[in-house]
């Protein structure tokens, strides 16, 4: 059975260049918030074989989530941590996952993300985003990939990745959702999630990030 698994894992990474897969497999990434950004980031990182993921969200799947979040009808009412873990184990069974269904606060954030040097901030509420960034950036060596502004149906090209602080990168267009009546739609939310996931990959592969 073990050799069958090993063969499957090798076959699943056949499209990647040599040397890449080892770096991705040794990667450890935390995802804070499993909504439109976080659920899609987690699935992308799992597909390419990022070895270990921490999935953090206290919420359950609701019908209004399905227009942009990586869940389906069968997940309604489930904790997002559990719904996502179950999907990822079917997409790529070689990913190790940890979950946390507590609300992240100033008091517990350091502890929850202690083992993870790369954290994707994927919360909805701007005050929660600020708390996470403020708290974790006080920790040495941590990099935060945050998101700000991905509402509506404006140009996809306005969503960008920018280095804002020494260890803070922000993806999005920085436009408040009030400016666009379309609400949050799968395409722009997933473009922003793609920016965040791509920056994770660039970090894991030690690429030169200076020019973001």
């Amino acid at each position: 059975m073990e050799s069958v698994s090993a063969e499957l894992e090798i076959a699943m990474t056949a499209r990647n260049m040599p040397g890449i897969q080892e770096k991705l497999k040794s990667g450890k990434v935390a995802i804070a918030g499993l909504g439109g950004l976080g659920s899609n980031i987690a699935v992308m990182l799992a597909r390419i074989g990022v070895g270990k993921l921490l999935l953090v969200d206290y919420d359950s799947v609701e019908p209004s989530n399905l227009n942009r979040q990586h869940y389906n009808i069968s997940h309604l009412g489930m904790l997002k941590t559990e719904a996502l873990k179950s999907q990822i184990s079917k997409i790529n069974p070689f990913i190790e996952m940890e979950t946390c269904a507590n609300k992240v606060t100033e008091e517990n954030a350091r502890d929850i993300f202690k083992e993870y040097l790369i954290v994707c901030e994927a919360f909805d509420d701007p005050a929660n985003k600020a708390v996470l960034v403020n708290t974790l950036l006080q920790e040495r060596g941590k990099k935060i990939i945050a998101a700000s502004g991905m509402a509506g149906v404006g140009s996809a090209n306005k969503i960008q990745t920018k280095q804002m602080f020494a260890n803070l990168y922000v993806c999005g267009d920085s436009e408040p959702s009030l400016h666009d009546r379309a609400g949050f739609m799968a395409p722009r939310v997933m473009i922003c999630a793609g920016h965040q996931a791509n920056l994770v990959v660039r970090f894991l592969l030690d690429l030169d990030i200076d020019k973001e």
Partner: peptide, 10 residues
């Protein structure tokens, strides 16, 4: 100073 002001959505 560098100031980042977050907007909602995620």
């Amino acid at each position: 100073l560098e100031i980042v002001c977050f907007v909602g959505g995620g």
